[in-house]
């Protein structure tokens, strides 16, 4: 289990190396990227802020839940600070004996990051305006993953 908040660029290839295991038959990862638009506005950058102490507690709890529920090994790395378009904001890695559990666990983890991890993002638009995002409810999350 690995949980980390970092101000450094996320390099998935390096993180993948940390997941290698001779007992794992499957690996699944998720990368959240900074895209150049949201709700009709051109986005130039994102700023992420985290409550580090509480993030560690909740991040490890999400991983622990995923590992118990799906019998996987799992990891989260979330970046903070100023990010540019195409940067990786969050990386999730999961391994298991079989692929089915890795897909399910990976989605469980990112769904719960979106709703529970104490991290906040501000969008910076091409016209110079800025806005703190008020919710992450894009409809992507599986409701079953959010019932604790």
């Amino acid at each position: 289990m690995l949980f980390r908040i970092t101000g450094e660029i996320i390099v998935p290839e390096k993180l993948r190396q940390t997941m290698l295991s001779s007992s794992a038959g499957a690996y699944c990862s998720y990368e959240g990227w900074v895209r150049d638009h949201n709700e009709g506005k051109d986005v130039n950058a994102l700023h992420y802020s985290a409550y580090r102490e509480l993030s560690h507690t909740i991040g490890c709890k999400i991983l622990d839940e995923a590992e118990s529920k799906f019998k996987v090994k799992s990891a989260i790395v979330h970046r903070v600070g100023d990010l540019s378009v195409a940067d990786i904001a969050v990386w999730v890695g999961v391994t298991a004996h079989h692929r089915g559990d890795t897909f399910l666990a990976c989605r469980y983890i990112i769904d719960n990051i979106k709703h529970r991890l104490p991290v906040w993002k501000k969008e910076v638009y091409s016209n110079g305006e800025e806005k703190w995002i008020e919710n992450n409810h894009c409809g992507c999350s599986d409701p079953k993953n959010l019932q604790l």
Binding site: G32, Y48, A50, Y51, L54, H78, A89, V90, I110, I113, K114, H115, R116, L117, P118, V119, W120, K121, W132, I133, E134, N135, N136
Partner: peptide, 10 residues
């Protein structure tokens, strides 16, 4: 004490 708006990470 910290007051926390809805989380928007990821």
């Amino acid at each position: 004490v910290a007051f926390l708006p809805p989380m928007t990470g990821g």
